[in-house]
């Protein structure tokens, strides 16, 4: 009996160790490749260089010369697309969360919630398809009317669709946070003759601010790491631009193009993908930890 007991416990512990190993493995594998990359290419060039053309590096590989791995345009593109996405997702997500938490009737909520959940569950490749087939032509037509020429693959297209993709995510976190504000506070405000919107703006949102901020941070982290939408709709060319109408490239797109379909592994080109991946990892890790810390601080205020 006691033996059996010990056996079960030991196997549970073993599983836990394995899970932990995996997390370590993820970091270690990406990190070691990154380090090997930085032994060939200077980290300074990578983080501050403004020219990104890893493909030429491939051709020069035989001669042992390294290509140009200035990742600034890549990060700039990531930043631009994420910014556009948040410009869509932050207002849409926040306002819908407020509407759902404060104004919506139970019947309306009952109907609209599953719709938003479906939206959150749609695979990103479907959003990518939608970006290419519907959003890009639509934006281009809209741009033409305004006299703007929008590239068929553009930061705007990818960012808009990604924003819509992140919206339900931001919304559901914000709604939780808003609903967590004690009801007595909003009733107190309403009983003084404040309108609902004044109550939301002056009492609920200030109280829920840390939670809302962390919802936005998590949204950003989702956007930074999102792949399929940008692969299909943002483009490949690494341009140093902040013009949302042009095609840009992002870290995830570059990782994909550098690694997919490439059987050979041991080159600066593939290792550059790992360096990008590692940067991505650090970025999202930072955003997530920040979000968690903010939320924890905020919980303490009410417990």
């Amino acid at each position: 009996m006691a033996k059996c007991e010990r056996l079960i416990r030991a196997s549970l512990l073993a599983c836990t160790m394995l899970s932990v190993m995996i997390t370590v493995l993820v970091v270690a594998s990406v990190f070691s490749e990154t380090m090997r990359f930085f032994s060939n290419v200077s980290a300074f060039d990578f983080f501050f260089g403004t020219e990104w053309s890893p493909q030429t590096a491939m051709r020069a590989d035989q001669a042992g010369g390294s290509g140009t791995f200035g990742a600034v345009p890549v990060f700039l593109g990531t930043f631009l697309v994420t910014l556009i996405a948040m410009a869509v997702a932050a207002p849409l997500g926040l306002f819908s969360a407020i509407y759902l938490a404060v104004y919506a009737s139970p019947r309306f909520r009952l109907w609209i919630k599953p719709v938003l959940e479906i939206l959150a569950g749609v695979p990103s490749v479907v959003y990518g398809y939608f970006a290419v087939i519907t959003m890009a032509p639509m934006l281009r037509a809209g741009g033409e009317m305004l006299g703007l020429s929008i590239a068929s693959e553009s930061a705007l297209t990818a960012g808009t669709v990604m924003g819509i993709m992140i919206t339900p995510y931001v919304m559901s976190i914000s709604e939780d946070v808003i609903s967590a504000v004690p009801k007595s506070l909003s009733l107190g405000s309403l009983a003084m003759g404040a309108t609902q919107s004044e109550t939301v703006k002056k009492v609920i949102l200030p109280a829920a601010l840390p939670g809302v901020v962390s919802a936005l941070l998590l949204g950003i982290s989702r956007g930074v790491g999102e792949t399929m939408v940008v692969v299909m709709a943002a483009g490949m060319a690494a341009k140093l631009t902040v013009n949302p109408l042009e095609s840009v490239t992002t870290a995830t797109v570059q990782i994909m193009t550098l690694l997919v379909g490439d059987h050979e592994f041991d080159s600066d080109k593939t290792r550059a993908a790992f360096a990008l991946g590692f940067s991505l990892f650090i970025m999202t890790l930072f955003l997530n930890i920040l979000a968690v810390i903010i939320v924890k601080k905020y919980r303490e205020r009410y417990d």
Binding site: T16, S19, V20, I22, T23, L25, V26, S29, V30, E33, L218, S221, V224, G225, E226, T227, T252, I255, M256, L259, F265, A273, F274, G277, L280, F281, T284, L285, N288, I289, V292
Partner: peptide, 23 residues
Amino acid sequence: IEININNLAAVPSIIFGLLGLSI
């Protein structure tokens, strides 16, 4: 360990692709 696992949940999926490729 807990923090580790929670953070793993938020790692972009493409990173797992990198891991699969290299390991």
